[in-house]
């Protein structure tokens, strides 16, 4: 069976994941095997079948829109790689 082609470089870009050229070629080979295996699903007649998003049938779960205690500002910032004035710091987005 021919290996399905995946453009690993493009997918990695979508996933915001930097890969070395080595990693790209290794992943390509490994995933071809897995995608070949997954072709098995094409045998199944799913025309009249509803998709299942969750293991238990769920309807929307709502709660009162009320203020409740939550993580403090300091706790929320405590693990930040970079912070200043009570804010997360990120590289410049707009010039």
């Amino acid at each position: 069976m021919s290996a399905p082609h995946i453009d690993i470089h493009r997918i990695a870009g979508l996933a915001r994941l930097e890969l070395s050229p080595d990693e790209e070629s290794r992943l390509g080979a490994e995933l071809s095997n897995v995608l070949d295996y997954i072709k098995l699903l094409e045998e199944v007649d799913v025309r009249a079948v509803e998709p299942m998003a969750h293991a238990v049938p769920h309807s929307n779960v709502v709660r009162a829109d009320a203020v409740r205690p939550s993580l403090s500002h300091a706790d929320a910032l405590s693990q930040a790689p970079s912070q200043s004035n009570g804010l997360f710091i990120v590289p410049r987005i707009v010039e």
Partner: peptide, 29 residues
């Protein structure tokens, strides 16, 4: 990384129906 790539591929435009949606239907079965 392998699973992020596989998952992103399965959800990406043009592949969603063939992969993810089909898998969700087989899951029902």
């Amino acid at each position: 990384k392998r699973r992020i790539i596989l998952g992103t591929h399965a959800l990406s435009s043009g592949y969603y129906d063939a992969y993810y949606l089909r898998a969700q239907k087989v899951r029902t079965l």
